[in-house]
Design a protein around this nucleic acid. Structure first.
Lengths: 200, 200
DNA sequence: TACGATACGGATCGTCGTTCCGTTTTGCAA
DNA sequence: TTGCAAAACGGAACGACGATCCGTATCGTA
């Protein structure tokens, strides 16, 4: 678990051309800088700020992460993976499939609301963010779908539900959850999840 | 119901200084142009586009509508008012308070999803949009609150609900409802409203 | 018709994303 | 160690945009 983080090391693929030392150093510096700047200024922080924090020129950022989406994905990949892997685990440990679903969504919400502006950008129709969109959806929708199916099979929720739609709904509810103490995204998400139950 | 649309005509106030003819003409032209451009390019369309469409210079836009929020409010004021007034009406005509609430939310959602990018900007933490935020909330939250209270009094929904939070939740769910046929905001909102019912 | 106030329009400034290009660094081989 | 080509770098430069400034044109009135 090391080496060229973003692209290489698919495992089997031919020729890992092995990047230069300064390139690897800068990529690491950029990831650290981006993570730090994201915390204080949000995921839409100016490119120049991130470059400055990392002590590199702006072009270097584009060389390593062609779009902002690539940078964001790289920064949060670990946490997204953790969330994805938590799905099956919860399904085993929780009292019921519905409970597993509820807890998993909670975890996802916890992740989102602590990332300044991530939820907002996650649904941006801005082309160039569709990579980000795609990554999150590809990784998490199947997990959510499994949980949904299990809960539906147990008769705990309605069966006409679509995982992608639910994930987007939850993501949307998390937008602006920071910077306004009057709005509690967790409570709204809880309401949405409560709405999944079979209607009387 | 005419005259200086944005500021004057509060009714009682001293001296409606009566703006110049060209000023009134331009304000009207700007409102029409903005409405048209918002439809095609969304509410975040470049200021220059709107000015060009109206046949005026950019400064004129800022003279009449200091912030973009002012322009958006002016363009949609009628429809927001209509929505606000529909609340009490529905409460009388609907079969039950919960039904009135459901229909009112539906109407609000219909309004939001047909306005390119309005829902997104409605929760933007960007200062300068807080005028917009404030207008929508001031006008609609009390209406929603009445509906909520009525439904709660009838025992149709839980009573621990907050109108502001609900409005923001609904607004958030409407973000990105256009430009992605896989996401149906109406369905998610319906789920959220279903979640309002007293839990078993 | 003349004049002051009002409003106008486009030039201008600062910010930001993105690209371009001359320079520096690195890895490797002689 | 030294030489060199490929790889990577950094900052200048460009275009889009929001916002402001200022010289000019227009309107209402005396």
């Amino acid at each position: 678990m090391e080496g060229n983080s973003t692209v290489n090391d698919g495992g089997a693929g031919r020729a890992a051309p092995r990047k230069r030392a300064d390139a690897r150093r800068n990529e690491r510096a950029l990831l650290d800088a981006a993570a730090a700047v994201f915390v204080t200024s949000g995921v839409e922080a100016p490119v120049r700020d991130i470059a400055a924090r990392a002590g590199v020129g702006v072009a270097t950022i584009y060389r390593h992460f062609p779009t902002r989406a690539d940078l964001i994905v790289a920064v949060y990949r670990h946490q997204v993976e953790a969330c994805a892997e938590a799905g099956p685990a919860l399904l085993e440990s929780a009292a019921s499939p519905y409970d597993a679903l509820r807890r998993w969504i909670d975890q996802f919400v916890d992740f989102l609301v602590t990332k300044h502006g991530l939820a907002a950008v996650l649904q941006s129709d801005n082309a160039g963010f569709d990579t980000l969109h795609a990554y999150f959806l590809d990784r998490l929708v199947p997990v959510c779908s499994r949980l949904l199916d299990a809960a539906a099979a147990a008769g705990e929720i309605r069966s006409d539900l679509n995982a992608l739609e639910l994930m987007r709904g939850v993501g949307n509810l998390c937008i602006g959850a920071d910077n306004d103490p009057r709005y509690d995204a967790r409570r709204m998400v809880a309401l949405l999840i409560a709405g999944l139950r079979p209607q009387p």
